[in-house]
Amino acid sequence: MTAETTIPDAAVAAVRDAEWVTVFTGAGMSAESGISTFRDADTGLWERFDPADLATPQAWARDPALVWGWYQWRARLVRDAEPNAGHHALADLASDRTVGVVTQNVDDLHERAGSHVVSHLHGSLFAPRCSNCGTPYHGVDADPDRAVEELRVEPPACPVCLSPVRPGVVWFGEALPEREWTRAESAVAGSDLMIVVGTSGIVYPAAALPERAVGRGVPVIEVNPEPSALSSTVTHRIAAPAAVGLPALLRAVRGA
């Protein structure tokens, strides 16, 4: 454990006693892998666009190729990134207890680190589907180099109804996928410890999940370098980034 990272003894005890841990992660979980948070300014081709203006059904209806190109660019960034020490610490924690991840992130870094992801609450960059019939699309969705060099990339056609394939993410104004929400609720309801990592705690209904755990008397540990909207609610707080705080917590739990 580094001298700068304080791990509360009670948090260590809570992890040691837990048999079923639900981990709830936000953008800060992936930031140290080089994945910018959604609201960070984009660069290069995309610096003049507001991400909030592209992540809407209205933007898709107006210019599908522009929206598809932006999401392909984001997917390219994720493909080039690697899971950080925080991702690996969570996967290691599952070696002697049940650990399920509920994430607001649309990347696949948890999976690549070896964690079991129970729910992608806001969808995934790697789960495109038909914009009309909803059929999952498993084809080659686009040339990743084009997504870096061109603003507009025409989306592929659905093999079932020939409609454009859309990104598999939840846009502003859309409801969370019912199946993913139900899975997240079940994971939180069954766990005896919750670890919240790198989330602002301001996006609902997702932010209600840690609040539910606290309401049930389940310990909730927050790992975040800055206070969040959940900081006054959680049981224990580790003031550190994911790639520092989670390995430090794991070492303390293992007595290293």
Score class of each variant (00 low, 15 high):
V99D: 08
S119G: 08
A13H: 10
A61K: 14
G28M: 14
L209V: 02
V214E: 00
P144S: 11
V140L: 11
G69M: 02
A207G: 06
V188C: 03
A184W: 05
T199Y: 10
R166S: 07
V196L: 13
T25S: 15
V102S: 04
D50N: 15
R112Y: 10
V106A: 13
S131V: 06
L93I: 06
Y71L: 00
D143Y: 04
C158I: 04
H110V: 02
P247Q: 10
V223F: 06
P247A: 09
S200F: 06
E185N: 12
G198D: 13
S232W: 10
F38S: 07
L45C: 02
L151T: 05
A61N: 13
P205L: 04
A10P: 06
V67R: 04
V170A: 07
W70Q: 00
A113S: 12
R254A: 07
D107H: 04
A187C: 06
G100T: 12
A31N: 11
T182M: 12
S200K: 05
P225K: 10
V165C: 04
V244Q: 10
P159K: 11
R237E: 12
D145C: 03
A13V: 10
R79T: 13
C130S: 09
H138V: 11
A206S: 04
C133Y: 03
R129Y: 10
P205Y: 07
L66C: 01
H116R: 09
D92V: 09
A113F: 02
G190Q: 08
G168W: 08
G134N: 09
